[in-house]
Design a protein around this nucleic acid. Structure first.
Length: 442
RNA sequence: GUGGAUGUAGCUCAGCUGGUUAGAGCGCCAGGUUGUGGCCCUGGAGGCCGCGGGUUCGAGCCCCGUCAUUCACCCCA
């Protein structure tokens, strides 16, 4: 083999795509229910978009971006994060001139140069939403509710919602000073990483996982207890709204997100059974971001939701989504004349929106049956000499083994009816499932 | 970037203290019925034992390097 897929990337194979389409389809559906509209932005952006918004002192910008120059000498980077491109599009494409607030979503790949591990890929997909133009805490609650609704409809349980507030630039400056003063006092007891972070990004010291730092950080001042009145009111309102949605949550006073643009609300949704990378959804408010990009002050709030981690969570809970891509009918034939007839029949079936397939390997009838069975076909239509003479086909249901002779001319109409009935049954079952899954979270 | 584990058939793995033609189960293909799937039986195809070097009469097994996978740290979805 000449080469393999690059480290930290995944091939999505046919067997994966049913689940993928259903997850993405559900994202489309839930977003429509909540009034969010889809955008697609380029896979690469000018590097400064990420440098200026995410922050130059963050790991993402310092060491994780796929950055390159194009042939015209432009400095570009593969999308390292979802919010900044969406915010850029909002400003550049003047979405602020549309009815407000602007509620957007996307399902797109993100690229970060990291060491791969469970739930971490160099290319991964995020379903993200962004609500721009309102600082109403009800919107912070809405996006959390949307995420939980989405998870609930997939049947996921045991999710843990953690929220915090890191304040606005006003209260954060005062708090930051207080924190740095405290940390300097205990600096000698902290690990090397923390001492370095103390100067560059002191808030991050708080969620250091190093055991030796823990005791010294217990007494450190936390942001949520040093909020200005506006931020405190916002945080309290968010909690009231979440309660109103019936969403259980925990306040995690050490939750600090690593991106510079966050203000006020930050949150994570953690799924059980994922190993070390257990956050399936993370986000928060970014009221200063649009200004950094050169626009008028415009508040915003959003989240990113990792599709690969979601998939791991579904597997951990044994949740299998139904197969949707199988062919409806396999047309088996015996002999050359019958094969020619089968070809025409398949053509007619497909024209009538019935998924039909046939043998291309000259296989025995038995082998054709095995193939039909393994590929998930629901029916096999058999054409042999007898059927050819009578202008009929033998139609067999593979799940029940029921078999009958039907006129060839009536096959399309007959199967159309069956396929429609099956689809209606499936829709009804899906409809029953949703409220029950949703109820498990309230 | 740091640390640990693992690389043998498409998949999951065996392979005794280095010793002749490298095995199993599942999967794939075919046959058992020249008109019928799932179960069963039989047969077949498929492996430069990740790659490169070394030790040895002899290496899948030992040593070194390298690449890849994987888990964890950092950080993130």
């Amino acid at each position: 083999m000449l080469t393999t897929r690059p480290r930290g990337t995944l091939d999505y194979l046919p067997e994966d795509m049913d689940r993928w389409h259903q997850i993405e389809g559900l994202a489309h559906k839930v977003c429509r229910l909540y009034g969010y509209q889809q955008v697609k932005t380029p896979v690469f952006e000018h590097t400064e978009l990420f440098e200026r918004t995410v922050g130059g002192a963050t790991d993402i910008v310092e060491k994780e971006m796929y950055t390159f120059q194009d042939r015209g000498g432009r400095g570009l980077s593969l999308r390292a994060e979802g919010t900044a491109p969406a915010a850029r599009a909002y400003l550049e494409d003047k979405l602020y001139a549309q009815p407000q607030p602007t509620k957007l979503y996307y399902v797109e790949p993100i690229f970060r140069y990291e060491r791969p591990q469970a739930g971490r890929m160099r290319q991964h997909y995020q379903f993200g939403i962004e609500a721009l133009g309102s600082q109403n805490p009800a919107l912070d609650a809405e996006i959390i509710a949307l995420a939980m609704d989405f998870f609930g409809r997939l049947g996921l349980t045991g999710l843990d919602v953690q929220i915090n507030s890191i304040g606005c630039p006003k209260c954060r400056a005062a708090y930051r000073e207080k924190l740095v003063t405290y940390l300097r006092g205990v600096a000698e007891s902290l690990c090397d990483d923390c001492r370095a972070r103390l100067e560059r990004n002191p808030l991050r010291v708080l969620d250091c996982k190093n055991e030796s730092c823990r005791p010294h950080l217990e007494a450190a001042p936390v942001a949520s207890e040093h909020l200005c009145p506006e931020c405190r009111t916002h945080f309290e309102a968010l909690q009231a709204y979440l309660a109103g949605y019936g969403i259980p949550f925990k306040i995690n006073r050490r939750l600090v997100r690593g991106l510079d643009y966050y203000t006020k609300t930050v949150f994570e949704i953690i799924a059980p059974g994922l190993g070390a990378q257990s956050t399936v959804c993370g986000g928060g408010r970014y009221d200063g971001l649009i200004e950094v990009l050169g626009g008028d002050p415009t508040p915003g709030v959003g989240f990113g939701l990792g599709i690969e981690r979601l998939t791991l969570a579904l597997e951990a809970q044994g949740i299998k989504l139904p197969r949707t891509s199988a062919t409806d009918v396999f047309v088996a034939s015996l002999g050359e004349a019958a094969a020619a007839r089968a070809l025409r029949l398949v053509h007619d079936l497909r024209a009538a929106d019935i998924a039909a397939d046939l043998d291309y390997l000259g296989r025995s009838l038995k082998a054709q049956f095995k193939y039909a069975d393994k590929t998930g076909a629901k029916w096999v239509a058999i054409i042999g000499d007898e059927e050819l003479a009578a202008d009929e086909v033998t139609l067999r249901r593979l799940d029940t083994g029921e078999q009958e002779r039907v006129p060839a001319a009536g096959l399309v109409a007959r199967l159309s009816e069956e396929v429609r009935r099956a689809a209606a049954g499936q829709a009804a079952r899906a409809g029953e499932q949703a409220p029950r899954a949703k109820g498990e979270h309230s």
